[in-house]
Amino acid sequence: MKPLLTTLILVFSFVAGNAQINTFKILVQNGESEIQIGEVVTQLKKGMVLSGDFTLTVKEGAYLGLVHNSGHVLEIKESGKYDANDLYGKIEVTETNMIVTRYTDFILNREISEKAAGINYEIMRDFEPFSDSEVNLYIPGATELYGDKLALEWANESEFSIIRVMNMFEEVLLEERVEGQRTMLNLENENLKKEEILLVKVYQDNDVESKAVALKRIDHETRTQHTQNLNSLTSNISNSALLELISAAYFEDNNLLADAFTSYVNAMLLAPNVPDYRSAYNEFLIRHKLLKLRQ
């Protein structure tokens, strides 16, 4: 019996020890960075798992978005050398947030699946509107809405555009003149916050306009549930582009596409020099047939 007991103790010790192993997964990567394990030096790539003793060399202008196996996230924006133990020490593990790891895996696995299917969203490819006869808004024609902020963007260039937000009877509640092709609407505006259904249209010169986008606010009970989920999801993440990317994955998974788009835009704006965020934004637009590659 003693050999069996000794074997069981060793097995349980191994399992318990491995449960505490620190690992990082690379969710976002830009520029050149290397990992050194012993004498072996390897270039870092998105999706790579980092564990054990290692040293990272982050070169000038590079960026890393890391997800710890506890669900905590870590951004590395400064060049230099980073020891594994120093990085582990930055993670205060009070509890494991499996929701974060679920959505980081959701992001990486979707990208792997799309590449396997031959879909390749290159950052520098040209995109174009589906039509020049109407303004192409980057939001599906009808969607439910959770948040109080709404990113609006459109493909068609113009000296300026007029944004109109209307109620279900097409009475204008808010009108804005916008230069450029993007704006952020505050849906807590006094004229908007009590409306359950909002219609949004963009107008440009020569009577070119978008189709009306219908946005329906989710009911109080559903909103409360999403708030609880999001609070749990983001409890270990400070305000960052990584937070917006993970939130976007949550919204898209729950078919809250206007909110997902807003988070993709926020991620891109918070880290404008990191192509992965722009790529995630492009992927969303192509995936939902809101934009097409230029032929």
Rank of each mutant, 00 (worst) to 15 (best):
Y281D: 00
I9C: 01
E157H: 09
P272V: 00
D126R: 15
F14I: 09
F12W: 08
E157I: 11
P272R: 00
M48A: 05
T183C: 08
V100A: 07
L215D: 08
I99K: 15
N231P: 11
T227W: 10
A258T: 05
K216T: 13
N22W: 12
T96W: 14
V40H: 02
G65H: 02
E209Q: 15
W154L: 02
L108T: 05
A260P: 05
F106E: 10
E144L: 08
E157A: 11
S33I: 03
T183F: 02
D205A: 11
L174Q: 12
D207N: 08
I21W: 12
M184R: 14
M98S: 15
L198K: 12
L243I: 12
A271T: 01
V200R: 07
V172H: 12
H68R: 04
P3A: 13
N136S: 02
G118W: 13
N254F: 10
I9W: 01
Y146R: 07
P272E: 00
E78K: 12
E75H: 00
L87W: 03
F127G: 05
E78G: 00
E175P: 07
S240I: 12
R164A: 09
T104L: 14
I246G: 11
Y203F: 14
Y281M: 07
K216D: 03
L108I: 02
Y63R: 07
R164L: 04
R294L: 10
H220V: 12
D83S: 08
K45M: 03
L198R: 04
S247A: 14
R164D: 06
E190G: 12
Q204P: 06
A62L: 06
L243E: 14
Q295M: 07
R102Y: 13
L5N: 10
S70L: 01
N231G: 12
G141P: 04
L152N: 00
V202K: 03
G141S: 06
S232D: 13
G180P: 04
L187V: 09
T57W: 03
M168F: 05
Y88D: 06
L50S: 08
F12L: 02
K2P: 02
H288N: 13
I107R: 14
S113R: 14
R278G: 01
E196F: 01
I76W: 01
V49W: 09
L5T: 12
Q228L: 14
A117S: 15
S247H: 10
R294I: 09
M268C: 02
T104F: 11
I246A: 07
P140I: 06
T23R: 15
A260M: 06
R217P: 08
R102C: 00
Q36F: 00
Y82G: 01
S113Q: 15
K292Y: 06
G47P: 07
S232Q: 15
K292L: 10
A62K: 01
L152H: 03
G118M: 13
D276K: 11
N120H: 15
